[in-house]
């Protein structure tokens, strides 16, 4: 599970360098994200632009990371590919996360504008 973390404009930006977050890697993903999130930051932005497949196990792992960061910190998502966006839509998790259209559009201003509550 390749995850690349970088501090950017007050957010910890994590690029997932894998095509799949599925049942085979869900636990490793969750563990590694929790480890990476030890770095302080107000927001954690998960860049999924290289991910073409997420199943329910992968989705559960992403939700679990968000719950582990809350309430002090927020997990936001960026760059969902169409197949991945569909899984979030089907399970209504698209209403739970702040989702940025592209990995570049993750400034604090756009995050504030896109966050409904």
């Amino acid at each position: 599970m390749n995850l690349y973390a970088e501090a950017q404009a007050g957010a910890l930006h994590v690029q997932v360098g894998e095509a799949r977050i599925d049942a085979a890697v869900a636990i490793r993903f969750k563990d590694k994200m929790r480890e990476i999130a030890l770095q302080p930051s107000d927001r954690v932005v998960l860049d999924l632009s290289r991910v073409t497949f997420v199943d329910s196990s992968g989705l559960g792992a992403i939700v679990s990371v968000m719950k582990a960061l809350a309430p002090a910190r927020r997990l936001e998502l960026a760059g969902l590919t169409p197949n991945v966006a569909k899984v979030f839509r089907l399970t209504r998790m698209d209403t739970v996360f702040v989702i940025h259209p592209a990995a570049g559009a993750t400034t604090a201003a756009s995050a504030a504008a896109g966050h409904g509550g």
Partner: peptide, 24 residues
């Protein structure tokens, strides 16, 4: 389906799979 206004702490981490299958 999960309720749309659940607090983060109450969100389910599983049970998504059959929801997805039944929708598709």
């Amino acid at each position: 389906r999960p309720q749309p206004d659940l607090a983060v702490a109450d969100l389910p981490e599983g049970g998504f799979g059959w929801r997805i299958v039944r929708d598709l």
